[in-house]
Every structure is written in C-alpha cells, then in structure tokens.
C-alpha cells in the first residue's frame, strides 16, 4: 500500500524500510508492515534479527536509510528534531529493565510523565490514581522501586506508559526479566489494556507468551519479515 494511502486507522506503518549501521551491518532489509488501531502485535525473532532496530525507528532513536516509517502522524525520516517529544508523547514505552527513577516513589515515577506535558497537579493526582488502580498498585504508591518486586516494578513502568493516554504502547521485552508467573500477570495486564482500546506492539523472545496470547505475530529474521500472521507461535515462528 503506498504511503499516501495509509488507512486513518493505521498507527504504525513501515514501507520498504532498510537500515544499515556503521560498518555496513544491515539491520533491516526492505521491511514492510503496518499496525492498526486496537491491534495487539508481537514482533519476534532471534537476537540480532532487527527487532530492536524496529523499536528504535518507532521512537526516532534511529532514522531509516531507505523506505519510510510512519508513526502516529509523523514521518520518521523527514520529521524535525523538535517534534520528537510530541511523537514520544503519542506513545507509551515499556522497557525490559523497567527504567524507573530509583529515588522517586511509585506515584512520582508515574506522575512525572504527566508533569513534562504540563498537566496540573489536580489532573495528575486524578489520572495517576486511576492508572495505579488499573495496574494494581493503589496500595503501593508511596513505595520506592527498590521496595517492589520485579513484576510490581514493571507494572509501574506500564502505569507510566499508560498515564498520558497514548495512541499505542511499545513494549520492548517487558517480561524478559521476570519469572513465568509474574510474566503471565504482566501479559494479562497488557491484554486488559489492549481490550480497553490501546494498541500494543510487543517485542519478545518468549515462545510461551506468543503461543498463549493468540495474537498477530510478525517474525523477523536477518532483518527481513519472514512471517506476518494471526495466531500463536506455532503458526508464526516455526523457524525461530
């Protein structure tokens, strides 16, 4: 589909994207896919397949060498640097290592994502209270990250990603540092968030999670999309 004919429901669009790093390493080779509003999409593939490059392109940490990447209403290759904050505010990021501020409480960690967009303290109190309740952290708001379990820390990360009502959430190996039971809890939370209408793009290695969730799976190998199918791991990632 030509870039100009993108469906208004499209949240992320990769069109013939190639990315070559210094030293000539080709991370992505003519990658095309799109993610529509409300979808839950897994991006899977072995280490070095190009999954992280896709994430980096979506948040404008990198730009494509060829092809076009459209995220929300931004063309990543041609957008001005000054619009990067607006792009990043349109999405929520969830990281494998949580990336919480260790000297801030759970409440402060979530609230500061709203402070940077200039929300009033009243709005912040109301919204943070809602997302902490949604992520099951209402009684932990005063805790520091060091006083929480890994799963709880990731919930704080998800609450922070959710607090500004993003168009979509990019989750980069969100269960990578968690045990199976905790990972299940996190996936259940992400599923609930998706059912409320938020698009979720999740990069993962976990075959069990992909299999169990029965969502759309995009498989990347050596920088190329080898499969893009609806369903679990059995359907999508046989060669993984």
């Amino acid at each position: 589909m030509p870039f100009s004919e993108i469906n208004t429901q499209t949240v992320v669009q990769f069109e013939g994207v190639t990315k070559i790093y210094e030293g000539g390493v080709k991370a992505l080779d003519n990658v095309s896919f799109s993610v529509n509003k409300g979808e839950f999409v897994f991006i899977i593939g072995p280490s070095g397949a190009g999954k992280s490059t896709i994430t980096k392109l979506m948040i404008h940490e990198e730009t494509p060498d060829n092809g076009r990447v459209k995220v929300a209403d931004f063309d990543i290759a041609s957008m001005h640097r000054k619009h990067i904050p607006t792009l990043r505010r349109s999405m929520g990021m969830v990281f494998q290592d949580f990336r919480l501020l260790p000297n801030k409480t759970v409440y402060e960690n979530v609230a500061f994502a709203m402070e940077i967009i200039g929300a009033s303290q009243k709005q912040i109190r109301r919204r943070v209270s809602t997302v902490l309740s949604q992520t099951g952290l209402s009684d932990k708001w005063k805790f520091l990250p060091s006083q929480l379990s890994g799963g709880e820390q990731q919930r704080v990360g998800i609450a922070r990603a959710l607090v500004n009502n993003p168009k979509f959430i990019v989750a980069d190996e969100p269960t990578g540092n968690l045990d199976n039971d905790t990972a299940d809890g996190i996936m259940e939370l992400l599923d609930q968030i998706n059912k409320c209408g938020t698009t979720i793009i999740m990069v993962t290695h976990s075959q069990q999670i992909v299999e169990r969730m029965k969502k759309r799976v995009i498989t990347i190998e050596n920088g190329i999309v080898v499969k893009d199918e609806q369903g679990g791991y059995n359907h999508a990632g046989e060669s993984l």
Binding site: P85, T86, L87, R88, R99, L101, F112, I116, I117, R160
Partner: peptide
Amino acid sequence: QREIEIMKYVGATDWY
C-alpha cells in the same frame, strides 16, 4: 543520566 534518558523517552523536550 538515567533520569534524563527516561525523561527523553517519555517525551520531555530538551528545554524541559
């Protein structure tokens, strides 16, 4: 540094 990095990821402007 980590605080700055996280601020950037959640959409803080350079001037913020």
